[in-house]
Design a protein around this nucleic acid. Structure first.
Length: 811
DNA sequence: ACACCAAAAATTTTT
DNA sequence: TTTTTGGTGT
């Protein structure tokens, strides 16, 4: 690193044990840098150590740098690690998610941003209902303008940095979209709410349109560090550029972008891997460092990951290596059915457990959520504790959303989304008719529902007025109360708890509502309400310290995401702050924590995690790679298949010690038995790293277990499975059959063994010279007329005349 | 307002 | 097959 200035010595412990590339990245000069950090290469360590190094060498004060992540989890981890490395309270630093930081920014500059100070944030559900209302108000056909698609289009436009007038209006459809977008925007503005994309967009526009604020922040932040840069969308990159300043600007911040193009799996929701190369070009990045040494996995696992990802074309190029040995071979299992696959997985998982692997160190990954059920069923029946990720999150539960709606109305009675959610929940005799009347009145006067209550007469008007009084009373009586008191009073006065007490399944919901009180309490403590604002030590003598703050803006406060008003220093009420928190951090997924349980999740959900043992299941053409991905060469020009392959790469690199791959010849999907061939991704792995496990007697009938009943309700605790006799399916001949499988009905055996003179049967794997490996879906006709429908995976399902086509049975 | 039934859809998802 | 959605009937 030529010309790198020298800085005061830092404790040797800080930089000790970094490898040369990590050290180089950590100690780069304040210039644009791109760090290509492979899976398990110590990415988070590099990020946090660089921040600590910058601070400890006095190159920057705690207010002069910003670190951005995507998830709250990643942000929290960074803060936690930093607090062990630094002698100060790092909580006031600008470390957070894109949305969290934009929220903080807009809270400080709400006036210039043209927002009410207590603006609330819509989650995706709120956004959808808001758009539905817009479509209804515009009297548009929901068939032609599907609300979900409209929210998608609006968010998509915002993430491109576009307002309604920036969109094309070439045809009627496009013009109506613009109309919906505009009306939605007006409605949000009227109600004082913003959606997730709006947080980013408004924050970006504020910087773009107000040079004095832009320059202030550009002077202030000398270092901006970005995690998971490959996942940024267009708007996020624009925002970063706005904050950092132009490449050659006098006060431009050093952008330190960390990412891995091979782990880009979110193109489908707008991520632009291209931002990496754009950044490299636009900022003339001179420091490109590849972290390729992996500290997580054994050689066989890494060899497989490398071999697989080498099949992708558009790559920045990177190869993982390790100094650990090759480790265990990767075990590959071909099952005859999804059922058998789950059974095998169960056996292997139990084996792992017996040999000392903690259950929580075993992960079962699948491409799509629907695949979890068979596995759950096998684990459940064997009494193996497991945990499924991906359910509803705490703040997304219906009862919690209802409670939050009441709280939001206390804070802002003009929040129509919340008004509509609870005006008749619990039921208080305000039906659709009355609500419609109210909406009409509101629409014609351009006011909120709450403001229009007086315009509705008769019995309906009286009931509405009484609801209004309920909220107003609540607001009055809780003025100055603690957050806990507010929530408890609301739960009581709203009738929510009373309502759920009469419900038969209401007990869980009441418990969740109690949990809400606990969450609020924790939030108050954590955010330091009732405590003095804590200022961070700032070294004024150090080179390049923080520029003067805006008037009234403290350098750092204890309340992490709630910067006071830039002019008045006013801080949000605990209630408004808690509501913001609830929207930005939807909380944990259900799933009982605590117990040592096998972890079940989609590959997407596994990103960023690691486990001693990983099972990747359902490796079949059509499932993984998913059939929809093959045809989707998405708008951005990203290749669907390549993204699937990166997904597989992410999955493989989650494993530390052992990796298991499995696929099944048949699988119940959408109520039908489907025949699949093994995923091309398996064939892209080095044969030398694999060890094929096959059931011994794969006799006839292979692939013919079909449906079995599933009698327990997901998530509703331990029910009981339907008795074995109810299972309609066939058990795999490789005995001993599992105790819970039914005997094979004789008639079905016949069907399975049916062959039409060509030595072929349904479900049989076959080879075709042109189309390769396939599975027979159906057999029809006989003699010269005999034909078969064969699923060739990537070539699709084809009908073949057996008198012509040469099909060789496999094994 | 609520219960019931039929029809349609069923990658991946954080904020 | 399961889940969600919408429509109809009471």
């Amino acid at each position: 690193m030529n010309g790198q200035p020298s800085y005061p010595a830092v404790p040797p412990s800080l930089l000790a044990n970094l490898n040369p590339e990590q050290l180089a990245a950590v100690t780069l000069p304040p210039e644009p840098a791109l760090i290509l950090a492979g899976a398990g290469s110590g990415k988070t360590r590099v990020l946090t150590t660089r921040i600590a190094w910058l601070l400890q060498t006095g190159q920057v004060g705690p207010g002069g740098l910003m670190a951005v992540t995507f998830t709250n989890k990643a942000a929290k981890e960074m803060v936690t690690r930093l607090s062990t490395m630094l002698p100060y309270n790092v909580r006031g630093m600008w470390i957070g998610t894109f949305h969290g930081l934009c929220n903080r920014f807009l809270r400080a500059h709400w006036k210039i941003a043209n927002l009410p100070q207590t603006f609330q944030i819509l989650d995706s559900g709120d956004t959808l209902s808001a758009v539905k209302r817009v479509i209804k108000a515009l009297k548009l056909d929901e068939e032609r303008f599907v609300p979900k698609q409209m929210t998608w289009a609006i968010a998509g436009a915002k993430e491109e940095g576009k307002r309604p007038h920036d969109l094309p209006q070439h045809d009627g459809q496009a013009r109506t979209l613009v109309e919906i977008y505009q009306a939605y925007e007006d409605q949000c503005q009227r109600e004082g709410v913003v959606d997730f994309a709006e947080l980013m967009l408004r924050s970006y526009e504020l910087l773009r349109d107000h040079p004095e604020i832009r320059e202030h922040y550009q002077r202030r932040f000398q270092h901006i560090l970005v995690d998971e840069f490959q996942d940024t969308n267009r708007l996020q990159y624009l925002w970063l550029k706005m904050l950092a300043g132009p490449p050659d600007g006098a006060h431009s911040a050093a952008l330190f972008a960390v990412g891995d193009d091979d782990q880009s799996i979110y193109a489908f929701r707008g991520a632009q891997v291209g931002n990496m190369s754009d950044f490299e070009r636009e900022y003339r990045v001179r420091h490109l460092i590849k972290l390729e040494r992996n500290y997580r996995s054994f050689g066989n696992i890494l060899d497989s990951a490398n071999a697989l990802i080498a099949h992708n074309s558009r790559r920045l190029g990177k190869n993982l290596h390790t100094e650990a040995g090759p480790g265990e071979p990767i075990r590959v299992y071909e099952a005859t059915s999804d059922y058998a696959e789950a059974q095998w997985l169960l056996d292997e998982a139990q084996q792992l457990h017996r040999s000392g692997t903690a259950r929580s160190e075993v992960a079962v990954l699948y491409r799509s959520n629907a695949q979890s059920r068979v596995i759950e069923s096998a684990l459940f029946n064997a009494g193996v504790p497991y945990r499924v990720y991906g359910g509803l999150r705490f703040f997304e539960r219906a009862e919690i959303k209802h409670a939050l709606a009441y709280l939001r109305l206390i804070e802002n009675p003009n929040d129509d989304t919340s008004f509509l959610r609870v005006v008749n929940f619990p039921a208080r005799g305000i039906g659709a008719r009355s609500v419609e009347q109210l909406q009409d009145a509101a629409r014609s006067s351009g006011r909120s529902l709450n403001q229009s209550v007086g315009a509705v007469g008769g019995a309906a008007g009286a009931k509405l007025a009484s609801f209004q009084r309920l909220i107003d009373d609540l607001r009055e009586r809780t003025r100055g109360a603690t957050l806990r008191e507010i929530i408890e009073r609301m739960l009581d006065a709203s009738g929510l708890v009373t309502f759920y007490r009469t419900e038969k399944e209401g007990q869980d919901r009441i418990e969740n509502l109690e949990e809400l009180v606990t969450a609020a309490e924790a939030f108050v403590t954590q955010e330091g309400f009732g405590k003095d604002v804590i200022a961070l030590p700032v070294d004024e003598t150090a080179p390049g310290t923080i520029a003067a703050p805006l008037p009234g803006e403290p350098e750092a406060v204890a309340r992490v995401d709630l910067l006071p008003d830039a002019e008045t220093g006013e801080i949000l009420s605990p209630l408004a702050a808690f509501l913001t928190h609830a929207a930005l951090e939807a909380g944990d997924n259900q799933a009982q924590a605590g117990q040592d349980a096998v972890q079940l999740m989609t590959v997407h959900a596994a990103k960023g995690l690691e486990f001693d043992a990983v099972f990747i299941t359902g490796l079949e053409e059509g499932l993984f790679p998913h059939e929809n991905s093959l045809t989707s060469v998405s708008a951005q020009g990203a290749d669907g298949l390549e993204e699937e392959r990166r997904l597989m790469y992410v999955a493989i690199t989650r494993a530390r010690q052992r990796l298991y791959l499995s696929f099944s010849q048949t699988r119940m999907l959408h109520g039908q038995t489907r025949y699949h061939i093994k995923s091309r991704f398996i064939e892209e792995l080095p044969e030398t790293a694999l060890k094929w496990i096959s059931p011994k007697n794969q006799g006839f009938g292979s692939g013919f277990e079909t449906s079995y009943q599933q009698a327990w309700q997901r998530g509703s605790g331990m029910g009981s499975m339907v008795g074995a006799g109810r299972h309609a399916g066939w058990s795999p001949p490789p005995a001993p059959p599992p105790s819970w499988a039914a005997p094979v009905p004789a008639a079905m055996r016949q069907a399975a063994a049916k062959d039409n003179g060509h030595g072929l049967r349904q479900g049989q794997s076959v080879f075709h010279n042109k189309f390769g490996e396939g599975v027979i879906l159906t057999l029809e006709g006989s003699g010269t007329d005999a034909r078969a429908q064969v699923n060739f995976g990537r070539h699709g399902a084809k009908w073949l005349a057996l008198s012509v086509a040469k099909l060789t049975p496999i094994e």
